[in-house]
Write a protein that binds this DNA or RNA. Sequence first.
DNA 1: AACATGATCAACCGCACGCCC
DNA 2: CGGGCGTGCGGTTGATCATGT
Length: 406
Amino acid sequence: MGRSPCCEKVGLKKGPWTPEEDQKLIAYIEEFGHGSWRALPAKAGLQRCGKSCRLRWTNYLRPDIKRGKFSLQEEQTIIQLHALLGNRWSAIAAQLPRRTDNEIKNYWNTHLKKRLTRMGIDPTTHKPKTDHTSAGSSTCNQYSKDSANLSHMAQWESARLEAEARLVRETNKLKVQKQLEFESSRPQARLFLNKITPLQQPSLPPCLDILKAWQSSWSKPTTTTTTKDETNNKVHSMYAMMLSNDENLESPTSTLNFPGTTLLPLPLPLSLPVSVPMTNNINVVAFNQNLLPLTDQSTNNDDEIWKQFNLTKQNTTETHDDHDNVNNNNMLNFQQDDDIMAAVEAFRSCGGFDNNINTPPISTNVLHENLDGSMMCNVNLEENKHYWNSILGLVNESDDININVQ
DNA sequence: AACATGATCAACCGCACGCCC
DNA sequence: CGGGCGTGCGGTTGATCATGT
């Protein structure tokens, strides 16, 4: 069988586009839309294949394309997302408004990749290169210097973030109470996701961006033997990082560590609870920046979910009034990495991260409708684990790095 | 001034996937 | 169910420009 090349026909032009060709393409699409790309060239009077037209339009002529130098924020975002997603340029481009995947790919290959390499970071794995013996002594010194600077920056950043997080917790406590007062007046709640709209702008400022969390994780106090709790805290730091909303990198704020048993904060409030199936058949409800477990795991009934949610939520806020880090039996204990991953990815899939982002970066998690009409998130844990593992690997190595620096 | 080398990026190529018949 | 088609994606190429010798 085999697909025939799209430009097989003799006489079709290849290579750089002329201004005249551009004009023809723009004029046609502005008037008729692109429709079928294969049919477009003939209709538009172009001696090009449809593929070439599509490429020219999507990568160059589209009016909503931003051209020119990448800003520092954009660079950071690309690095962060590449660490999470790898060479999934279209997914990365989806998070960078008005930039094309091709442009980002080129920028990565020509600039960012080299820069990371110079810093002693493997651009493929985003892990610091461990083999310093093969490199010259100057490279090694430079690596140590960069790492030390990074670590120093991170310590300052950590302190600042901790203070911000405290402030946010206080503010959020008040907002949750107000939200509860409002929501408690709602007797019915349907779970159709397409009806879910945020009631308000995120009450939490966007979480810390990934790079900062990365730095922060590097700056953790060095111990040769790591306790289980410390390891968990690091892991949770990275999960908090994954939850981060990149929309505003200017003012990152985060609650860095999740206590062993806590609400998992979500960056955007949902107006209705969303039932989320987890591993080990644990179901949770995603609502108003929190994930709460269902006490009755077997229920699929909307009203029951809503009732349980209100009950749990009430207990939660009461307990949180007493202490910040308390053990509440009604709250889900996210000891299982799988559950945390599922929760995060489920929330992503629900479109909860960012109003402006239409497509969740990880697209294999799907929504499906139950027989009773409620929506459930199916989470592809295996595939997601791949991304998480690369990040977690970095965290696990942080102790080694600090030891090398000191 | 001429040539060599490196950097950049638009464009191409081939594969994969979903949809439709 | 299988094949064809349309489209998207990621890797690669090659023309062009900048810089160094």
